[in-house]
Design a protein around this nucleic acid. Sequence first.
DNA 1: CCCGGCACTTCCGAATCAGAAGCACCGTAG
DNA 2: CTACGGTGCTTCTGATTCGGAAGTGCCGGG
Lengths: 112, 112
Amino acid sequence: MTATPKPGTPVRGSTTGRPFMAALDLLGRRWTGRVIWELHQQPAGFRELQRRCDQMSSSVLTTRLNELVEVGLVADGEAGYELTRLGEELVEAISPLQAWSRRWARTLARSG
Amino acid sequence: MTATPKPGTPVRGSTTGRPFMAALDLLGRRWTGRVIWELHQQPAGFRELQRRCDQMSSSVLTTRLNELVEVGLVADGEAGYELTRLGEELVEAISPLQAWSRRWARTLARSG
DNA sequence: CCCGGCACTTCCGAATCAGAAGCACCGTAG
DNA sequence: CTACGGTGCTTCTGATTCGGAAGTGCCGGG
């Protein structure tokens, strides 16, 4: 498996390991954002999470969960998988994206 | 090529086409976030952009640029490729990620 | 005409992903 | 005890996507 991107470690496309680049790399993997978002809505076990992510493949879900645990965004607790404090902070950091995406939809609807 | 994710269109992993899911899908492609970020720093032509993105492959850069133009985030102007207003708003929407990534780095450095 | 730079495009091997199937481990019911 | 359903993976195969080198066509200058 490809190395999980972490700040301080050189990642795909950046030899410096700048935290922001590592974050872009981590988020730039299929399903990563979605998994984080769903766990923010509600902690869940493996299968429920898989259902909520439109039946994403179990093999990818396994690797995503491992990656996210490894970098401290997700923990395996009593309620199943759940976001850590850091994970919740990430959700807050990308939550403006929600409002933006609605603007995007409106703009595209008018002109595209 | 896979369809470019757009709000209102069913996208990979979501039959509803909810704008936010489309945004997560779009950003969840390799290099997309980075390309947007670099264009925000400074508009650039194809080759300069490729250099600034750590020599990402030209084939992928071409498809990313086409996708981003298609969904109205990037335009091909006088200074080369540049973000549209919508694109700049997206950068603002994800800019909290910068501060977060630094917290992430500090936290991992202590405990990971 | 020749050269260099640019913006791609094409090709192919490698990495990643999707999807189905299967496995081992519970806890409960019989 | 055995059977059974649910869970969290793991494995496998084929499709998609990515990486990287090479090539193409189009300027503009000399």
